[in-house]
Simulated scan of single mutants.
Amino acid sequence: MTDWSTHFMGRDPHLLQARLAKFLAPIPAKELARKIDCDPRTAENIKGGHWPIARHWLGLIATFGEDITEAVFHPEKAAQRLEREVRDLESILETRRRALRDAESFASRMAEIRGRPEDRAASVGVRPDQ
């Protein structure tokens, strides 16, 4: 097992710590400490590249779920999932843009119809030749 792990991280023995630190970088240490129930100095150390103890890992997993394990142990899966989520969100956004354009077109058409005297008369049941 040691041989495999040495081979896996042969180029950078601190690869996993670096990934964890990168994942946690945007989170302020005090907030991280509150979320994983540790001292702010411990949170700073984890953010600085120190590997957390089991109790803190449980807090990290409880807080961030599968996102943190993917980011640290399977970053390629995390990237694929995020790309898929971005595509899905872009598709939803495009659908909403089309719906908005259709609604604006409809509203414009209705305003145009309301502006014509013969259409206004027809809407109240009076023919223009009466």
Rank of each mutant, 00 (worst) to 15 (best):
M1W: 07
M1V: 11
T2L: 13
D3Y: 06
D3K: 10
S5I: 10
S5P: 00
T6Y: 14
F8D: 09
G10E: 09
R11I: 06
R11N: 10
D12L: 05
L15H: 10
Q17N: 15
Q17D: 07
A18M: 08
L20G: 03
A21H: 03
A21C: 03
F23C: 05
L24N: 01
I27T: 15
A29I: 04
E31V: 07
K35T: 02
D37H: 13
P40H: 03
R41F: 00
T42N: 09
E44G: 04
H50R: 14
P52I: 01
P52H: 02
W57Q: 05
W57D: 03
F64E: 03
G65A: 05
D67T: 10
T69E: 08
E70H: 10
A71M: 06
A71N: 06
V72I: 08
F73C: 13
H74P: 00
P75G: 06
A78P: 03
A79C: 02
V86T: 09
R87N: 07
D88M: 11
E90C: 05
I92F: 05
L93V: 03
E94W: 04
E94R: 13
R96K: 15
R98F: 03
A99L: 11
A99E: 12
L100D: 08
L100E: 09
R101N: 11
A103T: 12
A107L: 15
M110V: 11
E112L: 09
G115Q: 12
D119F: 12
A122H: 10
V124Y: 14
P128G: 03
Q130P: 08
